[in-house]
Amino acid sequence: MDNFSYARPATLRDAASQLGREHNRVMLIAGGTDVLGELKDHLREPERLVPIRHLKELQGIRPSRTGLRIGAATLLADIAESDVIRQQAPVLAMAAGKVGTPQIRNMGTIGGNICQRPRCWYYRNNYPCFKHGGNTCFSAAGENDFHAILEGGPSFIVHPSDTAPALVALGATVRISSGSRERSVPIAEFFVTPRQDARRENVLQPNEIVTELEVPSAPAGSKAIYVKEMVREMWDFALCSVAAMVTVQNGVVQNARIVLGGVAPRPYRAAAAETALVGKALDEASATAAGEAAVQGARPLAKNAYKVPLTQAVVKRALLSLA
């Protein structure tokens, strides 16, 4: 790893003032589990790291008018184990508990988890792809076993976060600060498709910091689950995951949120699957139909067609577990 300048800012404003107008010259570090891997592999060679995990503006889990406010530096382990998150936003606690391993959850933060870079092996091996400022995605005609089946192109990365699909299902809002200016972005608009911006995965500007997540409480009477399918049982990124949240009243689905991870360049809200469920009983037939609807419009690449039936099965299994 090359060396870099480093000084702990005292406040959020100090931290933001160290950031520049380019993404890679100065980098933020929170838990560091993704950043250090990038530095060791020379994917990025920043002049300066700005540590933010200690900032008091980024700490804590607090009640808000509509639910909870979760500081961006909150550790994933604390989210997975928080009683109030388990009660009010259980799908988020479940998703945080599926990230990596106990050690990674003891190091990684929720802000870092939603801002992590793609795991695509071309990106990680420093191929000059879109993510490195180039003009091509090597996976399109290459080794694309783990790449996108939905919303792909011109880059075919998949979004690796577990907590992001859960936050989209809950309708969270991302609080962002540049020190002098604050803004709130609905999480579904925080992530971008490669058509919007092939180089980045979200709308964060180089001088901005994610400070907080506003997470509305799950609807009264709703049930939720996060299911993650991996090559092995744990310590991996999702081949496909689903955050599912369903409200059933008098035997009929009133409301459904189905958001997929690991299959698209951003957390993918499977609106067709939600529509397929609403007004139906939650049973084998509606769960199967929702699974099929979830992959409507899927365009698998040469080596990842297996993700289509996998996604159908994972959605169906998730829903049946809530029946």
Binding site: I29, G37, A77, P102, Q103
Partner: peptide
């Protein structure tokens, strides 16, 4: 807490 010492900076 148990952590991976390879993936944290001493300064951090």
């Amino acid at each position: 807490r148990n952590v991976y010492a390879c993936s944290m900076l001493a300064v951090e």
